[in-house]
Amino acid sequence: MPEIIAIHSFRGGTGKSNTAANLACLLARQGRRVGVVDTDIQSPGIHVLFNLDPKDAAHTLNDFLWGKCDIGRAVYDVSRILGPEERGKLFLIPSSIRTGDIARVLHYGYDINLLKEGYQQAIEQFALDYLFIDTHPGLNEETLMSIAIADTLLILLRPDQQDYQGTAVTVEVSRALEVPRMFLIVNKAPASLCGDALAAKVAATYNCDVAGVLPHADEMMELGSSGIFCLTHPDSSLGRAIDGILRRIET
């Protein structure tokens, strides 16, 4: 049964795209067929991580939502970034980075039924095991749609007060949408914090499973948004923590 996993956070800069990309790559490396959709139409970015030049993307999610093309034409095989050991497949459905396209979607919006249909078609056409949805931060209509469609919701937060408050709202709204499975992921935890204690505290506060606590990694900072951390530093503490999250959400 293919699974749709939405990755969300209340505020920007929590590392959503990075986490989504890393989880997708790890799954693909294990031989799964994995798709990633960039629904952050206002500020798309995940294509950078997958080395997809926007100029090469003749069709995007935007084109599909306006009925200009079939979803299949907006799907790009980016498996080459997995390296020579690739066994699974990795696909990306990018959003358009053209400002005109962005404004148009924001102005007219789109229909959730269409979106759901598109995902379904992409899953069937490319025989996907997993489809990751990278969302725009906050709780606008588009992100609510992604949450409504998802089988599993991963909510990222950083250990600071603003994230704590916003995440509380996100968790309750997601519960109201009856998301089947929901996990919290604490990202950018300072080295001074004990991960287990923080996870326990967060889990108790939100009454929600914590899939993992990701340490603040300087290597990740240096890498910036180019490249997939798990592929380059699998044995770092961050790499192992991301692997741990995967094992939590797979079961």
């Binding site: 250990p159 007060q161 704590y164 408050q165 509380a168 300072p190 001074s192 914090l193 204690a197 923080l198 505290k201 967060v202 506060t205």
Partner: peptide, 8 residues
């Protein structure tokens, strides 16, 4: 840092 306060 472990203090999580949420304005319910």
């Amino acid at each position: 840092e472990l203090q999580i306060t949420i304005d319910r």
